[in-house]
Write a protein that binds this DNA or RNA. Structure first.
Lengths: 201, 201
DNA sequence: CCTTCAGGTTAACGCCCGCTAACGCCACTG
DNA sequence: CAGTGGCGTTAGCGGGCGTTAACCTGAAGG
């Protein structure tokens, strides 16, 4: 876990604010002037950091997908080298990692499957490929845990559980749930319950 | 169950194609000329049927929310007047109805929580109110079935299950699953599993 | 038959918005 | 103390798009 303490660079500020705005009002719904204003500079100043508005979206989406996949792979290797390398422990780790991501980066979760088609072909292909690998990683773990579950059903179940875990943006902001840890625990239980229902045929 | 056999009116054609296009490329991503072309007329001809592009989106979103809520209420009354009026049967009916909707109207499902903020304030308030009532309807049934489940957790669970059921647009088009009935059955099992995990504390 | 009107058409306007051009200001660096 | 390059600024262009205007047509109705 490499934590950063230094101040965020201007590029990172821009990406963060752009992610928030894109998630709130859609890619086409926010103008470059708004993004600039959100970081204290004005419109065209953004072009010192990015070749265009599309490039910001591309970097965001590719970045999300890469981080998700990298996180998943990390947990797989961690599990393999740990004392208890059961599929169940691994699935729990995957769920937990995905929940952390969903709770920490809600705007990115929203963007992830909402604005994919605004990308250039090459970028879109890359994102789709990363997403597919991430799904396959889950599918393998699920099938290891529930060997009787057909692959097609396992894949559909994984997609459905992603929909479940990614529902966090819809949980009303204020005090819908006690706290973050309680929300995370609930989501974890729900996801496990869904997998159980799929696999315990 | 009132089934229609007569030909769809022009307004309905427009709404259907607009829903598809909005879902594919986002509200701002499709032009009026495209919508017109999709129904065989050209751009401004749409203004004989709708006061503006926004009005199409508004009618779509309000229509979805109303149909969802009406369907849910119908099943509640059906359950109350049936011989077996158990909460469990009712929850199954709600799930089944929602799945039917999700499988039959994927574009609308996609729009439902994606383009809400493009609406005029009054329309958005109306949609939000309908959504809230629909959620509350589910929450009551869930709490009847799992009395120990706190209300806040029940509500969050309902939202999460909606995310699960609404994941159908992400299940790759061709032959990801055998057929519609198999998909519906799987989603049903997953949803029940999630509720079980939430309520069986 | 003339009228009317629903439902189209094309032309064009006006705005919004992404992007470029041209320029200004420091903070370094030799 | 030049010079240079990173990082902004404002002005303005150009294209896309929602919308309106003006006109057309064919079918219904008295």
């Amino acid at each position: 876990m490499t934590t950063r303490t230094d101040a965020p660079t201007r590029r990172e500020q821009i990406l963060k604010e752009a992610a928030r705005l894109f998630a709130e009002r859609g890619f086409h719904g926010v103008g470059v002037d708004e993004i600039g204003a959100a970081v204290g500079i004005s419109g065209p100043g953004l072009y010192r950091h990015f070749p265009g508005k599309d490039a910001m979206l591309a970097e965001l989406l590719v970045g999300i997908s890469e981080r998700l996949l990298a996180g998943g792979r990390l947990r797989v290797t961690e599990d393999a080298t740990s004392g208890d390398d059961s599929p169940e422990a691994l699935l729990n780790a995957l769920i937990e990692g995905h929940i952390d991501f969903a709770l920490d980066d809600r705007p990115l979760i929203t963007l992830h499957d909402r604005e994919l088609d605004r990308l250039r072909d090459s970028d879109r292909k890359r994102v789709r490929q990363l997403q597919r690998q991430y799904v396959e990683l889950w599918v393998e773990v699920v099938r290891a845990l529930y060997p009787l579950l057909p692959e097609s059903e396992a894949r559909a179940t994984v997609h459905a559980v992603f929909g479940l875990l990614n529902s966090t943006p819809h949980l009303g902001r204020p005090g819908a749930l006690p706290g973050r840890t309680a929300t995370a625990a609930l989501l974890h239980r729900l996801a496990r319950g869904a997998f159980e229902a799929a696999g315990g045929s």
